[in-house]
Design a binder for these strands. Structure first.
Lengths: 166, 166
DNA sequence: CGCACAGTTTACGTGAACGTAAAGGTCTCA
DNA sequence: TGAGACCTTTACGTTCACGTAAACTGTGCG
């Protein structure tokens, strides 16, 4: 049988997923997760006693985030690393793990985060605009196609076929 | 000097661009154009006497189309080839180069085009939706960042810094 | 305990999309 | 008639993002 997780209690604490499960939840492979870890993008929050990677739901969320930045915005993994590292710094500040941080440093990190945020939003807007243009072109084409279908149907008395619906 | 184009008349007929110019207009490289040609994606409409590639504005438009499908929708060059080939078939029909085409064949090609069009539109819509979600998340983050800036500013009496504007 | 499956590291392989260099041909101008 | 910028083909190189295989370890069940 497939080995169950080292469940201390039947279902307590943050649910730990093995690597194959985490990969499946994000629609990717175990190799990909190990590769991301190698690049410093995604570290499992925990390990089993034997050293096997155990992922939390937050880890999976981070993984999904990576995939979105990659597939949707077209960043390479290096750029994604830059983005994530900055957010991690910010998270560290919030957790006040770093009590001895100066307000200047705090402000600097916030500035960086804001700049990245601005760049991302600009990029998203740009993509949205381009997609809208493309969509309009596609719709125009669809209209032309439909017109040509009508032409064909009226031109010949043939019965209308199965047709992909707009 | 840079050799001028074999201008029969100062500026008549479809403007022919050399490969470097066409590449520049699409923001890519000459290698890329030759590669696309190798894959059957983009053939220059004309050649110089000596055999050099000459691209029309339509060729450049097609090139830009390829880049959009690649960068915006994430297709690989093989899939883009499928899409373009179908559209080319349709264009051939319009030009009635193929006079001996049966209405059945005509309808079949139109059906294929419509199906591709539907798939593309669905994909664009999906991307638009995902981008919108991402944008909302980014905006939420931006708001949190701004709140933290205020925290910092009121917390200390320091002068406000240069700040990235939202 | 031992089986079977999942996980581990290490390392080489792969496909896509070009980059780049070599060796030569072409086109226009001076 | 060069000079020089641009072009050609051929072919090997490169980067990214993993895939895949090998050899080994760990985990849970019967």
């Amino acid at each position: 049988m497939t080995p169950t997780l080292p469940s201390v209690a039947p279902n307590s604490g943050p649910v730990s997923l093995r690597i194959s499960e985490a990969a499946a939840q994000a629609g990717t492979s175990t190799r990909t997760l190990r590769y991301y870890e190698e690049l410093g993008l995604l570290r499992p929050s925990r390990h089993s006693v034997g050293g096997a990677r155990r992922y939390t739901e937050d880890d999976v969320a981070r993984l999904r985030r990576i995939r979105e930045l990659q597939e949707l915005l077209g960043f390479d993994l290096g750029e994604i690393g830059d983005i994530l590292r900055n957010e991690d710094q910010l998270a560290e500040l919030r957790n006040e793990v770093q009590a001895g941080v100066t307000p200047e440093r705090h402000r600097q990190i916030l500035d960086e985060a804001m700049e990245i945020n601005n760049r991302l939003r600009a990029l998203v807007r740009a993509k949205q605009d381009r997609l809208q243009v493309m969509m309009q072109e596609l719709e125009a084409k669809a209209r032309r196609y439909r017109a040509r279908f009508k032409e064909l149907d009226t031109g010949s008395g043939a019965a209308s076929r199965s047709r992909a619906s707009g």
